[in-house]
């Protein structure tokens, strides 16, 4: 699904990613763990195509297509979804309107027809129910006045609606209490599928109790410095990141 090779990324004057390589096979869930400043958010923003993240070397491919040549919306249409660490508030745009516009834009880019209004509403109601969200919230301005937990739930709701091939979850557990963490994790687990991959980016192991990864990678100073099975996460929880050196 996702193949990253020798990725170098600059933000302003500083090189943050320094030759990062990573592969996520189709259908697998991989976790990327690392200390603060290791480049975790830079990785997710670079994959999603945020401007200001300058790729100076290396490649990133989604199912063989060059991701780096595409802008953010084109990547989304290819199936890349980023769950933001800090989801944006967009006053004046109800969540439903936003998701529907996004879904239709993606379908159009893939040469598919628009989703009908009743079909869309039916799906939205079902997904909202799964995530125990008050449907009325979807009629209000996107994320406006939402709590941290509500915002994260809204991200997972969008993920469910947009059905991406590759979901990148950037610090999805930050700002969540234990109940919200459970709901969000269940939402994510429900979206695990044979044709979908996930990249779970997190500082703490606790999220991985709920979303069990197939592989765990350690990101330190801009590179993947170790990879292993789920047990690696527990080891990190126990020993910390010290043995991988200080972040750049």
């Amino acid at each position: 699904m996702l193949k990253i090779d020798n990725l170098h990324v600059r933000v302003g004057e500083a090189e943050i990613l320094k030759g990062l390589s990573l592969s996520v096979p189709t259908g697998e869930v991989h976790a990327v763990m690392g200390p603060n400043g290791a480049g975790k958010s830079t990785l997710s923003y670079t994959l999603a195509g945020r401007s200001g993240y300058e790729v100076t070397d290396g490649t990133a491919q989604l199912l063989g297509d060059d991701l780096l040549a595409l802008n953010a919306s084109e990547r989304a249409a290819k199936g890349v979804f980023l769950s933001f660490q800090y989801p944006l508030e967009i006053p004046g745009v109800p969540a439903l309107t936003f998701v529907r516009a996004a879904l239709n834009a993606q379908r159009k880019a893939r040469g598919e027809g628009e989703i009908s209004a009743p079909e869309f509403l039916k799906k939205a109601k079902a997904e909202a129910a799964n995530l125990k969200m008050d449907f009325e919230m979807l009629r209000r301005g996107l994320n406006v006045g939402f709590s941290g937990g509500e915002k994260k739930r809204m991200e997972i709701f969008q993920m469910a609606m947009l059905a991406p091939r590759l979901a990148i979850l950037d610090e999805t557990d930050s700002g969540l209490d234990i109940d919200a963490l459970k709901i969000v994790s269940e939402g994510v687990n429900a979206l695990r599928a044979a044709d979908r991959s996930m990249l779970v980016i997190t500082h703490y192991q606790r999220l991985l109790d709920h979303i069990r990864p197939d592989r765990v990678h350690v990101l330190a100073a801009g590179r993947i410095v170790a990879s292993g099975g789920p047990e690696l996460a527990l080891e990190l929880e126990r020993d910390g990141y010290d043995k991988y050196g200080k972040a750049a």
């Binding site: 999603a48 195509g49 945020r50 401007s51 802008n71 953010a72 919306s73 990547r75 989304a76 249409a77 890349v80 979804f81 980023l82 933001f84 989801p87 944006l88 967009i90 936003f98 998701v99 516009a101 996004a102 879904l103 834009a105 993606q106 880019a109 969008q158 947009l162």
Partner: peptide, 11 residues
């Protein structure tokens, strides 16, 4: 906000 909307697929 622009990036957020684009990352969800809006041109």
């Amino acid at each position: 906000a622009l990036f957020y909307a684009m990352s969800r697929g809006l041109p």
